[in-house]
Every structure is written in structure tokens, then in C-alpha cells.
Simulated assay, not measured.
Amino acid sequence: MTIAVGVFELFTYAIPGSLYVTLLTYIATRAHWMDLAAMLRSPAFLLVIAVVLLSYLLGYLAYPLGLLAHKIVPKRRKRNAREEFLRRNPAAKGRPFTKADPFLLLAAIQLQDQEVGADASRVRATGLMLRNCAPPVFFGAVTAIVELIVGRNAVAAISCAVLFLVSSIALVVQGRMLTHWASLRTFEVAFWIPEIDDKFRP
């Protein structure tokens, strides 16, 4: 249980937060608000702890930005994991678990077997990680545009702006796909647990 929660928090909060830390460090160094060389001379152990804690806190605080990005980026198509699962597996039609909420179903699977449910949790955490990484990458594109105006290397600035902008959109799209796969995986795992239906009978 501790490992599963740790992986979820690492993917969902700490990794996106580390991108915010990287971006803020670059901006602060570029604007001469911070002496990066002096910071690197500080004790490595304390520096690592500070970066890890700051990454987690920023990732947690900026979580709503990932949700906002999810809402802003247009959807190319509507995905429904329940309908896709039933279309691919007609034998599951009529079973009570197919009518359950995917998150509630995942909780029931984890009560039955924590390790079996961990796979869907990891896929969902990866999807959230990609989605939450989109805002700092987009802000990186904005920073590159500013560098185009005030900097001296126009080619690098334009290249970074285009790359970061496209990447931020792609991260949201791939995050949606992985979230869909996580829900689909939840139904697939539940299919092979006969007693799971008893938990959702009226």
C-alpha cells in the first residue's frame, strides 16, 4: 500500500512539480534574482531534500492548472471505457460490475487483491502525470517567446517555443488516452473476478 501511494504521488505531483522548479529556476537565474552557482555550492543532501519537497508542493498546488488544461484543449473524439469494454467483450453484458463507476470498481478490486488493482492505478497515475506536466511546458513556451524578444538567440527561442507549445498539447491528449486505458483496464481486470458482481448487486 505504501509503495502504491508513493508511486501515485510521485507521478501525479512530484514529477510535474519538478518541471515547475526547473522553469522557475531558469527564470530566476536569467533575471539575476538568484545565484545558481552559489546554490550548487550548498550541501548536496540539503539541496536534494529542498528540491524534492518544493517539487511535491508545487505539483500539488498547481494540480488545478492540469485540470484546467484538460478542459481547455479540445477533444478530438469522445471515449467511453464502459461502452468500449462491452463492445469488445459481449460476454460481460448484464453483469452488475459493468454498471459500476470505474473508480468505485477499482476500489473494490483493490479490496479483493491490492496487487491486481495496482496496475490500473499506475496507468491512471501516468495519465495524470502527463496532463499535469502540460502547464509548465506551456509556460516554457511563453518563456521562450519572451527570450525571443529580449534574448540574442532567435533560432533557439523559436525552436523551443514551437516544441514546448506542441508538447503541452500532446501531453494533455496522451494523458486523456492513458486515463481512458486505466478505466478500460479496470473493467478488464474485474471481468476475471467472479465474486466482484456480488459487491454491486442491488
Rank of each mutant, 00 (worst) to 15 (best):
V7A: 04
E195G: 02
S18R: 06
A31Y: 15
A4E: 09
V173M: 03
L184T: 00
L23S: 04
V21T: 06
A157D: 03
T2F: 14
G59K: 02
F200K: 04
P64Y: 07
R95C: 02
Y60I: 09
V172S: 00
W181G: 01
A50Y: 14
P102I: 01
A144P: 03
A91K: 08
P43E: 15
L23Y: 13
T12S: 05
V173Q: 05
R176N: 05
V162H: 02
F45C: 14
E188F: 00
I27W: 13
G59R: 03
V189F: 01
I3W: 11
F164Y: 12
K71P: 05
K199Q: 10
L46R: 15
E83L: 11
A190F: 00
Q114R: 13
I109A: 00
E115G: 06
A37F: 12
L184G: 00
L128V: 02
D113G: 04
S167C: 08
A14D: 03
T126R: 08
K71Q: 13
L148G: 02
D198P: 02
A118N: 10
T25M: 11
P96F: 03
G151F: 07
I158R: 04
A108E: 11
A38M: 09
F139E: 01
T22R: 12
G140S: 10
Y26S: 08
V48C: 07
E83W: 07
A125H: 02
A14S: 11
R79G: 08
L105P: 03
W181P: 00
E188M: 03
G175D: 01
G66T: 04
G175F: 00
L104N: 15
A62M: 15
V150Y: 10
H70R: 10
L178S: 00
I72P: 08
V116P: 05
S121Y: 05
A69D: 07
W33R: 08
L54F: 11
V155L: 13
T29H: 12
V172L: 01
P96L: 02
G59V: 04
L19T: 05
A14Q: 06
V172P: 00
F200G: 04
A100V: 08
I49G: 09
A118S: 14
C133V: 06
C160Q: 13
N80Q: 07
A161W: 00
S159G: 04
F45K: 14
T25I: 05
I27G: 05
Y13N: 05
G140N: 07
C160L: 13
M129N: 00
A141Q: 07
P136T: 06
E9S: 10
L24A: 09
R41T: 11
P90L: 00
A154R: 13
P202I: 05
L46G: 14
L61T: 10
A44P: 08
K199H: 11
E83R: 11
A141H: 09
L106F: 09
A50N: 11
D101Q: 10
T179L: 04
T12V: 07
L61R: 08
M177V: 08
A38F: 09
D198W: 08
T186K: 00
K78D: 13
